[in-house]
């Protein structure tokens, strides 16, 4: 067994994020923030925020292999389940709580939104829009959408709650959560991407929501 190949990964890690939603989130985070990333995966976003924004970061992940990747990147991460165990984090212990493409993968998205805003002052959500026209067209033909943005078939997708931008807006209203900002995003291959900002529920395949129980986006560059 050899471990000698590990450290070089950590030193020469790339500092560019290939996903547009992550780039957008990276740009809005102010210097020196306290960031919690729920469902942080292998820790790429947090590593970038740690290095470029000098953020004090913590990830949460349930997959052991991804935890090991976080550790190899030098990203602090907590191995736990978002559905049951966020009691580990005390009230208002972070500035921003990030959920990138994770809200639709937990058992109770509504409870997770409440937890987010208990732990952080602001929540940043990257949301996959099942109301996007590509998805709607596939549904019209009688099948759950499988495309570039939603690559996995219905029986094998972590996205167990397919929802639309409009659905998330309604949920926030029900929970008395303010949406401070929506940033609709289009991806390569989207139909009429130029209309994403005009009719996001139909033309944005992804949308970033900034949510809070207060009135202000709390220092975010948005």
């Amino acid at each position: 067994m050899t471990f000698s190949d590990r450290p070089t990964h950590l030193i020469n890690d790339e500092l560019s994020l290939h996903r547009r939603d992550l780039q957008t989130i990276q740009n809005m985070i102010p210097d020196g923030s306290r960031i919690l990333d729920l469902g942080c995966g292998s820790g790429r976003l947090l590593k970038v925020l740690k290095q470029t924004k000098h953020a004090s970061v913590t990830g949460v992940e349930r997959d052991q292999n991804k935890i090991l990747e976080c550790a190899t990147r030098g990203v602090p991460v907590i191995h736990t389940d978002l559905d049951t165990s966020l009691g580990l984090f005390s009230d208002h212990s972070y500035d921003y709580v990030i959920l990138s493409r994770t809200l639709q993968a937990v058992r109770r998205p509504d409870l997770l939104l409440e937890e987010m805003l208990r732990i952080g002052r602001c929540g940043i959500i990257s949301f996959m829009n099942f109301g996007h026209i590509n998805a709607r067209i596939q549904l019209v033909f009688g099948n759950m959408p499988v495309n570039r943005n939603l690559p996995r078939p219905w029986y094998d997708t972590p996205t167990i709650h397919p929802g639309t931008i409009s659905d998330l807006r309604n949920l926030c209203r029900t929970l008395n959560i303010r949406i401070l900002r929506e940033i609709p995003l289009s991806a390569e291959g989207d139909f009429l991407p130029g209309l994403a900002g005009v009719l996001p529920n139909l033309f944005a395949s992804n949308c970033i929501f900034i949510i809070s129980k207060g009135d202000h986006p709390e220092g975010l560059s948005v």
């Binding site: 913590t58 052991q64 991460v77 191995h79 580990l88 212990s93």
Partner: peptide, 20 residues
């Protein structure tokens, strides 16, 4: 986890893994 909670409460740089 009890230890981890106490560390997080103090804002310490903490990594936790429960190895299968």
């Amino acid at each position: 986890r009890e230890l981890v909670k106490a560390l997080l409460d103090n804002g310490l740089d903490t990594t936790y893994c429960n190895i299968e």
